[in-house]
Amino acid sequence: MRNERSILTSGPDKDAAHQGGRSWRRCIVWAVCLAVLSGLYAAVRLTAESEAAGRGAARGQRAGFLTEDRVDSILRGVKALEKTWQDLTPEQEYYIGRAVVASVLQTYRPLDRPQANAYLNLLGQSLAVFSNRPETFGGYHFLLLDSDEVNAFAAPGGLILVTRGMLRCCENEDELAAVLAHEIGHVELKHGLSAIKQGRLNSALTIIATESAKQLGNEQLVSLTQTFEASVQDIATTLLSKGYSRKQEQEADAAAVRLLRRAGYPDRSIITMLNRMDKQLGRSRGLGFDKTHPSAKSRADGLRKIVRDTGPVADEVRRQRFVNAMMPVIAGQ
């Protein structure tokens, strides 16, 4: 084979002829590649367009504008395509999350401490940018709750609540970062939305799919509001009483470890926080976080497999700013 090649490529004429042949072969290869790419492009585009409520809608959208009539006719043709909570849009998730927080605040009082809430938001938002889901419709926002119960809640869309009791499980900023990272994990993984009962979701999505693009009619508004309220209740019940599944908690813990590492916090802070929480909960078994989460000890044990126990040590500046912002709250002053 080697010999044949050397014979074919010997001499200037043959070289030129061979190079010409190689160029044409390359041309053919490139042309085939282009043809395949074009075919793939057409297929992908067509699939995407049909999934997006028809080619007409996609064309109209690419033009940047759809008339109400056009949207109405499209929507009539795509009845109840969405079947799961995953199909709820970030905008819908945002409004659900807001109502979930409003519902939780019927049970827990907000803590009106501007300095502490500002620090909580600075820390939380500094972490959220490193999440796998840094962008939500309305962004991430955090609020302290005036309760000695050890608890924290993540509403869909990025609204996160933390009790004074939970703060008492944290000795420094790194451990509070671990609490927030766990809650951001629930938002990232959309665990809240998954708590909406399937039957409820079906009726909601049926109403939504057949709804006009214009303002809702009164009957539709009443119907949709009832479904919305019930969906919010499903999530609130999970947050306040039932809790997420063990698997979801493990997923949120794993997301928290990843987030802490990305943001530069020592990932072992989640274990030290859980150990402190376990001791704290020893005084109030069956209440708050203990009621809705797997035991802190079992979570810490599970995390030891993935926590590297390396990384930066607790930093004095971080410890001090945590103390300055949170100690008056922790002390109940």
Binding site: L66, E68, V71, D72, L75, L88, T89, E91, Q92, Y95, I96, R98, A99, A102, A204, I207, I208, A209, E211, S212, A213, Q215, L216, L221, V222, L224, T225, F228, E229, S231
Partner: peptide, 16 residues
């Protein structure tokens, strides 16, 4: 701007 034809929006929150 809103997603045309989609519920769970400001109008629903306003009603609540």
């Amino acid at each position: 701007v809103a997603i045309a034809g989609k519920g769970f929006n400001e109008q629903v929150e306003q009603k609540l």
